[in-house]
């Protein structure tokens, strides 16, 4: 497993997350796509840490740990927003939530 293969896996994961947030119309799956893109970034951090010249600094691992905590907070607030929007609009389809559309 070399670094470029790991980066390609990470790019594929990012693309799948981007496609999920662009193509799916359900708000929960849009959030899932954002989570997948965050995970792809974390995989890059771990891969560069593994192949770095000074892995004893743990910069990649510490960054990933903080990033995981941030993503957990983001998922909680995002899902609470989706539940609140669903209570108001009675739908979670992002195409039908268009009150602020210009």
């Amino acid at each position: 497993m070399t670094l470029d293969i790991l980066l390609l896996v990470s790019a594929a994961l990012f693309t799948l997350g981007l496609a999920s947030s662009l193509l799916r119309r359900n708000a929960i799956l849009v959030l899932v796509g954002i989570e997948l893109m965050l995970n792809a970034a974390n995989l890059n951090f771990i891969a560069f840490w593994r192949f770095s010249a000074h892995p004893e600094a743990f910069t990649g691992i510490l960054f990933v740990l903080f990033s995981i905590a941030l993503a957990a907070a983001e998922a909680a607030v995002g899902l609470a927003l989706i539940i609140s929007i669903h209570r108001f609009y009675k739908t979670s389809n992002v195409d039908r939530i268009d009150r602020m559309k210009g």
């Binding site: 989570e35 995970n39 771990i46 891969a47 840490w49 593994r50 691992i61 990933v64 995981i68 905590a69």
Partner: peptide, 14 residues
């Protein structure tokens, strides 16, 4: 890849 703690945190949190 050798990052045991990050992997365990990933499994627990995600």
């Amino acid at each position: 890849l050798g990052a045991q703690f990050a992997g365990l945190a990933q499994v627990l949190v995600y």
